[in-house]
């Protein structure tokens, strides 16, 4: 090596790559906030859109995103936690467990648009649910299942084995042990995973494109079989599909900011939760 200078240069090069990423993130967030903040008002948040979104607000899209998040979580969280409990507490090494793990890794790697095609094929067409909140929630639930399983299993495994043994030695059954001496301590970690999943659902566009989202629907849904607008899809429509680009631009920035606040706010909540949980249970 040609000595200290090249060493220093390499070190700086790597520092540069790291900080460049930080810079870009800062730039994106700043750009959205700077232009989006002006668009945001009570009217924007809580009124119906007019003239295909060029005027008025984004209330139905906010409601739609909220419904999709709530619905898909309501399906995926119990299933994900149950699977995680099975994997961490019951599963023995063997073919079945291996198959489950391969399936989870596969699910995690499938592109979201393919989930959209799957939702279209199964829920919308085969089960006849049509383009509806139900179809969208089911599709999104399949998509976030691996996220929830993996984070829940991690938080279950973080509970020391000695607590399980202590409970079993007192004559508690396996399920009593899990219910009263494992789950309570891992709930925090599970919620962290849940929050991350919420962020992912709220920002996802491709699957709902094919299963639920309405291009322009200035009213609130009445049942689970209605279509809804959703924030990410609305942003896509405004920024690429709208004929009057200049007029909708502030609305698009506003929508982007609401979405960003939602997703990052939820992410921040996850981080705070993680710190809180770490403090509460130090093994």
């Amino acid at each position: 090596m040609s000595g200290k200078f090249s060493q220093k240069a390499m070190c700086w090069l790597m520092r540069l790559t790291a900080y460049f990423v930080v810079l870009v993130v800062g730039f994106i967030v700043f750009e959205i906030i700077w232009h989006g903040a002006r668009a945001i008002s009570w009217e924007f948040l809580f009124s119906m859109p007019r003239r295909s979104g060029a005027e008025g607000g984004i209330f139905p899209a906010i409601v739609g995103t909220f419904l999709l998040v709530a619905g898909s979580i309501a399906v995926a969280f119990p299933l994900g936690v149950a699977t995680a409990i099975y994997l961490s507490e019951y599963a023995r090494q063997g073919r079945f467990t291996h198959a489950v793990r391969v399936a989870i890794a596969t699910l995690a790697g499938i592109p979201s648009i393919v989930f959209g095609l799957f939702g279209l094929g199964l829920f919308v067409i085969f089960l006849g649910w049509g383009c509806s909140i139900m179809s969208g929630c089911a599709t999104l639930a399949c998509m976030i299942l691996p996220t929830i399983i993996v984070s829940s299993e991690e938080s279950l495994r973080a509970v020391p084995q000695s607590l399980r043994e202590g409970s079993l030695a007192l004559g508690a059954t396996k399920w009593q042990t899990i219910w009263s001496n494992v789950l309570p301590y891992s709930v925090g970690g599970m919620l962290t995973g849940l929050i991350l999943a919420i962020g992912r659902v709220a920002g996802e566009t491709a699957p709902i494109l094919l299963t639920v989202a309405a291009f322009y629907l200035p009213k609130l849904p009445r049942s689970m079989s209605d279509q809804v607008m959703a924030l990410p899809y609305h942003l896509y429509v405004l920024s690429t599909q709208h004929p009057d680009t200049a007029a909708v631009l502030p609305k698009a920035y506003g929508t982007a900011l609401v979405l960003l606040i939602l997703v990052l706010g939820v992410g921040l909540a996850a981080i705070i939760m993680r710190i809180h949980v770490r403090k509460k249970y130090k093994w």
Partner: peptide
């Protein structure tokens, strides 16, 4: 009953620790 090498109190209150078995 069993007492372990590394003490393993549950991260609950003292009362709940001792009452754990009877409750179960």
């Amino acid at each position: 009953g069993m007492v372990f090498q590394k003490s393993n109190p549950f991260p609950k209150s003292l009362f709940d620790n001792v009452a754990y078995g009877p409750r179960t």
